[in-house]
Simulated scan of single mutants.
Amino acid sequence: MTTSTMDVFRFHHTPFYCEENVYLLCKKLCSDGIANAEGSDLFVVFISNERKQAYIKKGGIPPLVWDLDSSLPFPSPLPSYVSETIRPSFQLFSDYNRLFRVVHAPIFLRCFASDRRHMKDSGGNWIEEPPQHEPIVAEDGAVHNLNEYINISVADAITDVTTSSVKDAIFTEKHGVVIKENQLEKLVCQLSSLE
């Protein structure tokens, strides 16, 4: 992949439906030949914490970040993206420290499901209007497993991203691995060197 800026409007985006947007982005990158046909050169990253309230400033080729919600160039080189959106030097209260769930895109595309129940209030009314496309159903027939991806705990975070078991888990586990923010660039660079 190159670092040239692309038109973000080529890609489907429904506000407030980030996970579905990422799912469709991966599919389009594969179908358009920007990524490998099966998505083996893509990784999906969920950013959250135990409070599900992560602060993010919206705002060799290094790995690229394809963030439809960012105001940065699309795609952005990983170091610029981390510096401008993650902002590791920005001090947060410990309750808001970000964790990252890294999932290999081919696994995510097979296993992720969302029937959008998380976007309805207790009366069954939409909190935000849903996308026009059908809800995403996993290959195994699961209709909703979003919480399995966004429920992230410090206790789940691995301590050493350099071990082969971490790389094995990313390429085989449905939910990938959870890492701390200071490990993100190192892990992504290691994964990029495997391609």
Results as ranks from 00 to 15, higher is better:
148 E>V: 02
102 V>I: 07
6 M>E: 14
58 K>Y: 15
153 S>F: 04
25 L>E: 11
131 P>R: 00
11 F>N: 09
23 Y>A: 07
53 Q>C: 10
92 L>N: 12
106 P>Q: 03
78 L>G: 15
96 Y>I: 00
8 V>Q: 08
36 N>S: 14
147 N>M: 05
150 I>D: 11
103 V>R: 01
3 T>M: 06
169 A>S: 15
125 N>I: 00
27 K>M: 09
33 G>H: 10
98 R>M: 07
47 I>T: 11
124 G>K: 04
78 L>N: 13
84 E>P: 04
67 D>V: 02
11 F>V: 06
139 E>Q: 03
184 L>R: 04
54 A>P: 15
11 F>E: 10
167 K>G: 14
132 Q>F: 05
5 T>C: 11
41 D>M: 01
181 E>Y: 03
21 N>H: 03
150 I>K: 01
27 K>D: 15
120 K>N: 12
138 A>K: 00
22 V>M: 08
4 S>V: 13
2 T>H: 10
1 M>T: 15
164 S>I: 04
159 T>G: 14
107 I>M: 02
148 E>N: 09
12 H>W: 09
44 V>L: 04
86 I>G: 08
15 P>A: 14
131 P>K: 00
48 S>D: 14
170 I>E: 10
120 K>W: 03
39 G>I: 02
128 E>T: 03
178 V>Q: 03
104 H>Q: 09
125 N>H: 01
65 V>M: 06
19 E>R: 00
38 E>F: 04
16 F>K: 07
165 S>C: 13
52 K>M: 15
113 A>H: 01
152 I>F: 07
34 I>P: 14
90 F>D: 08
99 L>R: 01
13 H>A: 10
175 H>S: 11
6 M>A: 12
143 V>G: 15
144 H>P: 13
50 E>Y: 00
170 I>H: 05
48 S>A: 13
145 N>I: 04
161 V>Y: 07
74 F>S: 08
11 F>S: 11
26 C>S: 12
71 S>I: 02
76 S>H: 05
82 V>K: 07
72 L>K: 01
127 I>Y: 02
151 N>M: 07
170 I>W: 02
18 C>T: 08
72 L>T: 08
69 D>N: 06
98 R>G: 14
129 E>W: 00
155 A>T: 12
69 D>G: 11
49 N>A: 09
94 S>L: 01
16 F>E: 15
177 V>Q: 05
169 A>P: 13
193 S>G: 13
80 S>A: 12
2 T>Y: 06
108 F>K: 00
